[in-house]
Amino acid sequence: MLQMFLRRLFLGAITVAIVSMIIFAGVEILPGDACTAFLEREAQGRVLENCREELDLNRPAVVRYLDWASDALRGDLGVSANGQRSIAEMVGARLQNSLLLAACALIVGVPTAIFLGVVSGLWRDRPVDLVLSTGAIFAMTIPEFVSATVLILVFSVWLGWLPGIVLTSANAPASEFFPEIILPVVVLAMVMTAHILRTVRSSVIEVMNSDYVQMATLKGVPYWRIVFRHALPNALLPAINVVALTIAWLLGGVVVIEVVFNYPGLGRMMIDAISDRDLPVVQAIALIVATVYVGVNLTADLLTMVANPRLRTLYTRK
């Protein structure tokens, strides 16, 4: 078990390393560099030379990659091209905000999704299920900016109950984001609930139709005991991986929501950095998102393994 864990960890680290190379190479291949981007028109002659000197851009790419990577390992992500500020600091605040948003969405979304998924799976084809399933498809297909706009229109413009955009500054403590954060959380929770609900629903249906649930019924096991003891432990296994994907998505892929609500998260920072051609920042964020992705999926796989005797015994017996 431990050996397996270490092996997965090692593979995860290699994945992150390869991704970091791709990110670095990608930025490197783009025409221009941090200095041409920052200096724009003035990027010529001595000024450019000086800038390059200062940012160490004259050394070979491989050396710069190794420097960047080993600094990143120590938590030092370098300085941004324009502001001359520590990227780790800038990104740190944004990462916290993203984590706050993600955590709120997860706390609201995951229990709701699992509960509703189980309900609609157990009452398959009944009115509850039809309502929930149709709702889920709606939530999945309507683009986020549309639902976000509608919610802003209803709750902040018409009813005036909730603030429609976030005005708190990026470095403010978490508590100051309430109640501004509520609408973005609702939009995110809706989308992720829809995805998780559908997975849980189909998995519950499959398990409730399985031979072992039929057998438990024929053994005289009371219905709710079948649901909780025989069915759910098996039906919820696939949910672990979907939740992991959702977490990764929440931390890196919710650009649209952040833009609509003016939320100072990682995604928006990435967009800003791209439009400013602030390449060191782009690199840093891409690296963080990739690491989160790998980390979350690794955790999910390990959890699945612990929860699924089929996989667990593979490593603990014999």
């Binding site: 057998m215 432990p233 005797p309």
Partner: peptide, 12 residues
Amino acid sequence: PQNSGQSLTPTL
């Protein structure tokens, strides 16, 4: 049952 392998609950 016909297929006892699939008729035993895998997590118990």
